Simulated scan of single mutants.
Amino acid sequence: MDLGLRGKRVLVTASTKGIGYAVAKKMLSEGAKVFITSRSEENVRRALESLEEIGEVYGIPADLTVREDRERIVKSAREALGGIDIFVFNTGGPPPKAFLDTTLEEWEHSYKLLLESAVHLTKMILPEMLDRGWGRIVYITSVAIKMPIEGLVLSNSIRLGIAGLMKTIAREVSGKEVTVNAVLPGYTLTDRMKEVLESRAKREGKTFEEVVEEISESIPLRRLAMPEEVANVVAFLASEAASYVNGAFVPVDGGLIPTVF
């Protein structure tokens, strides 16, 4: 199926590992031009070396919690790509912690990482899409906005802001051929998820393998997702094929979320 992404200009944040990297790779394989970011200069270099074998890709190191870095991301992406047609917002996650173990500093940092950065980047990118009369915004968030995950109070709380942001913008830009959606990954085999599961294993006095098995048993598909499976859904939402999908929360969780809505 041709997704109509050839030649589209795509910005994917936090995209040198895990789901973000898988999204960048998928977009390139569909013929899009891609701009990637990461806090680590070394990670950007390695990702570029790998992705350049697939298509036209650029990238810079930048910290999403820093305003000046966010501005530099958008400026650099526009210069490299000639504009931004598709914005895929992805971030790393805050540390896995229970509420009483968190500090105010961790709350402030998590807000900047998960919500402030989404707001700021969207405000810089959305007007260009509206002027052009076409655009796609996809926020990669988490099933935690529908089903809080034990030990992830920072993520459970602040990611809910993305839900309200997405729904509001999707209605505000109606009639402009710009769609705004969110993808909700469940348990996905990334370095971040391994960290979360290792923390849970330590807390519960279990092995990593035992925790993975327990979680797999709670998922109807009886396994964790691969990053590429999330990337496929992101690419669809960013495509011409999803032209009538707007304001949607799309779980990619193997059936984990038990609620109807």
Rank of each mutant, 00 (worst) to 15 (best):
M1E: 14
D2A: 05
K8E: 07
V10S: 01
A14D: 12
S15A: 15
T16I: 09
T16N: 11
G18H: 04
I19H: 04
I19S: 01
G20N: 14
G20Y: 13
Y21Q: 10
V23N: 08
A24K: 14
A24L: 15
A24M: 15
K25I: 12
K26Q: 14
M27W: 12
L28V: 13
S29L: 13
K33W: 02
V34I: 10
F35S: 09
I36A: 11
T37Y: 10
R39S: 06
R39T: 08
E41H: 13
E42Y: 14
V44S: 05
L48N: 13
E49G: 15
L51V: 11
E53Q: 15
E53R: 15
I54G: 08
Y58V: 10
I60Q: 05
D63E: 08
D63G: 04
L64M: 12
L64Q: 04
T65Q: 09
V66H: 10
E71H: 11
V74H: 05
A77Y: 07
L81A: 06
G83H: 05
D85Y: 04
V88K: 07
F89M: 11
N90S: 15
N90E: 12
N90Q: 13
T91L: 10
T91D: 10
G92P: 04
G93D: 01
P95I: 00
K97T: 00
F99T: 00
F99K: 00
D101A: 03
T102V: 03
W107H: 02
S110R: 02
K112H: 14
L113Y: 02
L114P: 02
L115C: 09
S117R: 03
V119C: 09
V119D: 07
H120S: 07
H120I: 02
H120C: 02
K123P: 13
E128A: 09
R132C: 00
R132E: 05
G133N: 06
W134Q: 05
V138A: 13
V138H: 12
Y139F: 15
V143C: 00
I145N: 00
K146P: 01
M147D: 07
P148N: 10
E150R: 05
G151C: 07
G161P: 11
G164P: 11
G164K: 08
L165T: 03
T168G: 09
A170H: 09
S174D: 14
E177R: 14
N181L: 05
A182G: 05
A182P: 03
L184T: 01
P185Y: 07
G186F: 05
G186Y: 03
T188P: 04
T190W: 06
T190I: 08
T190K: 04
E195S: 08
E198C: 01
S199Y: 07
S199K: 03
E204L: 14
G205P: 05
F208C: 08
E209M: 13
E213M: 09
E214I: 03
I215Q: 07
E217L: 06
E217F: 05
S218N: 06
P220I: 11
P220M: 13
L221N: 11
M226G: 00
M226I: 01
M226F: 07
V230M: 03
V233C: 02
V233N: 01
L237F: 13
A238G: 15
A238V: 12
Y244S: 12
V245E: 04
N246W: 12
D253N: 06
P258K: 11
